[in-house]
Structure formats: C-alpha cells, structure tokens
C-alpha cells in the first residue's frame, strides 16, 4: 500500500465527516459557519511553508511570497471576523442572565 492510497482514503473519509458535521447546523449559524470553514481553508499556508524548502530562481520566490501573503491573510482575517460575529451572539446570553 502506497502513501497516496492512504491519503486518498483520508480524503474520502474527511468528505463524509464534513457532510455529517455541517448537515445538522441551524440556519441561524450558517454565516458564522461559512466564515469558520472559510478560515479553515487557510490551512493552505501549511503547503506554502512546506514548499518554501525547494526554491529555485526568482519566480519561485515571488510565488511563495504571494502565496504566503494570501494564506496568512485568509487565516488571520477569517478567524478574526468569525470571532467578531460569534462574540455578538455570546454577549446577548450574558446580558440576559444578569
């Protein structure tokens, strides 16, 4: 069994997990959820970091720079905006219990 078979298995199972995790969420939370999923695809930065080990030539450096910029923007922006949104929901519960 090669590593690619393992990765393919992981891929298929993860698709099913995504389906299960999202399917039951009330529509009230769809926007934060979309934003949450949105920040998770910032994991592309992992790929950028790993690719930075095999750089040859100026084009390579430029590409990695842009990709790193994009990936980091996706992660930080995505989590920050999700938190801002979810914080609004949380404050209300506190106010009420006072």
């Amino acid at each position: 069994m090669t590593i690619i078979t393992v990765i393919l298995t992981i891929f298929i199972l993860a698709i099913l997990i995504g389906y299960e995790v999202i399917g039951k969420v009330p529509s009230t939370l769809h926007t934060p959820l979309m934003s949450g999923a949105n920040s998770i695809h910032g994991v592309v930065l992992v790929g950028v970091i790993l690719s930075a080990s095999a750089l040859e030539g100026p084009l390579n450096y430029i590409l990695i720079f842009i990709a790193a910029f994009f990936g980091a923007m996706n992660i930080v922006g995505g989590y920050a905006i999700s938190d801002r949104m979810l914080n609004m929901f949380k404050n209300k519960t506190k106010d009420e219990s006072k």
């Binding site: 990765i7 891929f11 995504g18 389906y19 695809h41």
Partner: peptide, 20 residues
C-alpha cells in the same frame, strides 16, 4: 505534497460548502 492536514481540512471545507 502528501500532507494529511491539508487534505482533511480541504475535504471538510469542500463538502461543507457543497451542503451549504
């Protein structure tokens, strides 16, 4: 690049986005 976390996270976001 044989990276498990990218494959898992990407697949989850992919299927979640489809359902939404």
């Amino acid at each position: 690049i044989y990276n498990p976390v990218m494959v898992i996270a990407g697949a989850i976001v992919g299927s979640a986005g489809c359902i939404l």
